[in-house]
Design a protein around this nucleic acid. Structure first.
Lengths: 202, 202
DNA sequence: CTATTTTTAGATCAATTGTTCTAAATTTGA
DNA sequence: TCAAATTTAGAACAATTGATCTAAAAATAG
């Protein structure tokens, strides 16, 4: 009965299935069976809907990272689990990733927020890399620059696996998550020590 | 003096700098100082402009790949060279990559064409991987599934490094190409044999 | 030179957009 | 209960869009 929540739910559904540029506030209102005037009573500007959905996504990620930071020591299994949860969350809000550049142009607040977030995440990744090296899971014989590049790779892969899926396979739901979580695992494989590689092959 | 060519040139410039959704046929005509009617005489539908620019990009890539296939044997240097040329070409037509999902929704012909292209490229990559393994440059002790995942990684990185740059660094021109070609090199580093790694470190 | 074709400018059209406005309906709270 | 606040519907507005149409101008060809 909460109209505001309903607007967000319906908008998410429509944006995910039809894209952020083809869906207007009138479409959302029509799908809900409410008037455009009513929708704009709750969200003066349509972009506020997008911004709110982005904030939900960002909050979800923060929760995942907080959880991860509580676990000590980090193992390959916890990393794998974190990976799958991240993919699931991203899939739920997939329209944001499918139209990331568009949205960041349209809602500058999102661009700013995302930039700050990547800065934070970068540091967190290096801490985790350090833990995994100390645990004998990650190799210690690669130059530092290789690990720096890996962080960028992780960001690009994390932000755009959904776009790749949209352009090629178009796998849905759990199928997509399964497929791309394998690719994420494979991505780390060459960085593992031989013993960790052997354990992963089981 | 060739109006058609001029439209394509101006459209590319505007799409690259302002995005594909904010620029309309009227903007392009205004920037050129011609009438909207004239523009639509040359391109009945605005999407034909986008499609033509995509075809120019695809043709450019085909040329690069053809060149690469003539070189035998493939070394790390030729691969590095191919990588830089690919990045340069992508940068020239960057609006396509920055709005890839949008465009593929808007111009279905592009989606189809891209899908066929990835299928072809996938095979070509496996051939090159084989050559590099035979030459003692790539490792031969990784499971086959790791190489399959690497191909997907290459596609995602190749298609979306520009989006990552847009969202974070916003490096321009040769600076962006330099930065991301390093990341591409680093991406292959863990897949190299120790001797190839040593040679690369120089 | 002149007739024909190509190119161009500019008006125009119908559709859609985000947003605002007004007034009615509904809910809330004392 | 009943006044005030909240929520809603639906009309309305100005701006913009892709595309079409008409007629003039320019280029081309015989």
């Amino acid at each position: 009965m909460d109209t505001r929540t309903n607007i967000l739910r319906t908008a998410l559904e429509l944006y995910n299935s039809q894209g952020v540029n083809t869906i207007t506030s009138r479409h959302i209102a029509a799908k809900m069976g409410i008037s455009p005037g009513n929708l704009h009573y709750h969200f003066r500007q349509t972009d506020e809907i997008i911004k709110t959905l982005y904030e939900q996504l960002a909050a979800g990620f923060d929760d995942l990272v907080s959880e991860l930071e509580l676990i000590n020591p980090v193992t390959l299994d916890t990393l794998q689990d974190f990976s799958v949860r991240s993919l699931e969350l991203a899939y739920k809000y997939r329209f944001i990733f499918l139209h990331f550049v568009e949205i960041s142009l349209r809602v500058p607040a999102i661009r700013k927020d995302y930039y700050a977030l990547t800065q934070r995440r970068e540091k967190e990744f290096f801490i985790i890399f350090g833990q995994l090296k100390a645990a004998g899971i990650f190799r210690t014989d690669f130059p530092e620059s290789i690990w720096e590049s890996l962080v960028t790779q992780i960001f690009i892969m994390g932000d755009f696996w959904l776009s790749n899926n949209e352009l090629t396979g178009k796998l849905r739901g759990s199928q997509a998550i399964k497929h791309y979580s394998k690719i994420f695992s494979a991505m780390f494989y060459p960085y593992l020590t031989p013993s960790a590689q052997a354990r992963m092959a089981e």
